[in-house]
Design a protein around this nucleic acid. Structure first.
Lengths: 240, 240
DNA sequence: CGCTCAGTTGAACATCCTCAAGGATGGTGG
DNA sequence: CCACCATCCTTGAGGATGTTCAACTGAGCG
């Protein structure tokens, strides 16, 4: 895909060649600062499917920036039920949620992925080079995402929740410069249902109904949105 | 509580005499830094009930720390429905949620309150004095709160959601050194129901049922938790 | 005193969940 | 290359739960 001109050393970690560079901390930096940033960040390693980035209760010493692939976070309540709390696309931050310095959720790769690690004690250094504002902004955007999630989960209708989920994913894909109507679904239906607070069966039923209505089509590892307008209509359709 | 030695000038804005100091950015600072911090923060003014701190779409130039009282945030979807997205107690941060530099929710005082304003462009200065870490931690804790909220809303049972809400409030009160069983409720039932994604009637019914069961008692502007164990049992009772 | 607004209660209906069984799909081993 | 198995997904019927619409109560206020 990229040019054949690959540098001989291990510079593939460099932010300057990162595919998700523009959606990241590095978004506003020039080449000099890009190099400095790359030095603050721990080299990423590929993370295979089902491998954990971190787990609940571990000390929150660093946070993570998704470079490629997809992650999910989940928490477990005292009665042992697992709850999926979020899906994470490239450019998004992972692992900030903490309490008393410990992670309050676990993050696991849904598919083979890469993530950059940023130690918490490097944050002052980041701030010095003017990335503090960007980090703060990213966190703010993350909170915004969460708010929309809340808004979505607050909805009564299953249709509306599903539509909201798809719209959310779509928007985030656009942010990455990808097609808004092709939603990658590397996660299981169970995960999505869990995330949306629905039963697996309800989700399945609703999806097939939407397919039959010609609104979308489901595939092996993605969902194709055929009528975006219909989706957003459903998303709004919150007859509370 | 504190010494009678009050300074004569308008130092009531000073962090050193703030009632919620320990739950705030100022938590780990000595007196010198406390003074510097106070200089970075805009003087707070009392905010009366129903008065807005900021509104959706306004540029997100600053964020807010609740000093006293209670706020709620709400967002409005495209079809005009209002959704309550959170309640904010003293020591908690408000107004970080943003997208493209604009507030994505509105914040309004539920009762007469005070809040400290912190300009976004002061963040580098904060970082210099070592508060950056605290700010980051507070944001992380906020995200944790949000996650728990999500976890809670993901629950199917209305009982469980209500219990979750009460537990959440309870925990946050403890953090402020207040009684965990006396939950102030300055907001309306409508707001709570909206926040929990329930109909007003369902909430009302469930509450009276809990009262009859002797689990809690409802009052004009607070809810008294009588059997905390029963509440947390309900909160876990998530037969998904 | 009558008004309004917040909260409670009731009955009918819609929605979603549960339990259970039946397909599809991918991976594994012969 | 095919059969088999495990897993994931779909589909169906019955029951639990929540919503809606509507009437009612009570508190605060001019």
């Amino acid at each position: 895909m990229l040019s054949v001109n690959i540098q001989p050393q291990t510079s593939s970690n460099r932010c300057s060649v990162c595919p998700t560079r523009k959606a990241c901390l590095a978004s506003n930096l020039d080449d000099t600062d890009l190099g400095r940033l790359a030095n603050l960040i721990e080299p990423f390693v590929p993370i295979t499917k089902n491998e954990y980035l971190y787990r609940v209760g571990e000390p929150a010493l660093r946070h993570y920036h998704v470079r490629s692939g997809m992650f999910k976070t989940h928490a477990i309540n005292t009665s042992g039920d697992e709850y999926v709390t979020g899906f994470y696309l490239p450019g998004e931050i992972l692992g900030c949620a903490q309490s008393v310095g410990k992670h309050t959720d676990s993050a696991v790769a849904i598919e083979t992925s890469t993530a950059c690690k940023l130690a918490a004690n490097k944050i002052p250094a980041l701030a010095e080079m003017g990335v503090g504002g960007t980090l703060f902004r990213l966190l703010g955007e993350r909170e915004d995402l969460r708010n929309q999630q809340l808004l979505n989960l607050g909805q009564t209708r299953a249709d509306a929740r599903i539509a909201g989920f798809l719209i959310d994913m779509s928007n985030r894909l656009v942010r990455l410069g990808r097609c808004p109507n092709h939603i990658p679904i590397p996660m299981s239906r169970t995960d999505i249902a869990n995330y949306l607070g629905l039963s697996l069966e309800s989700l399945s039923r609703k999806l097939t109904r939407m397919v039959k209505a010609g609104i979308l089509s489901t595939h092996r590892d993605y969902i194709e949105i055929i009528q975006p307008e219909a989706i957003s209509l459903l998303g709004l359709h919150t007859a509370r």
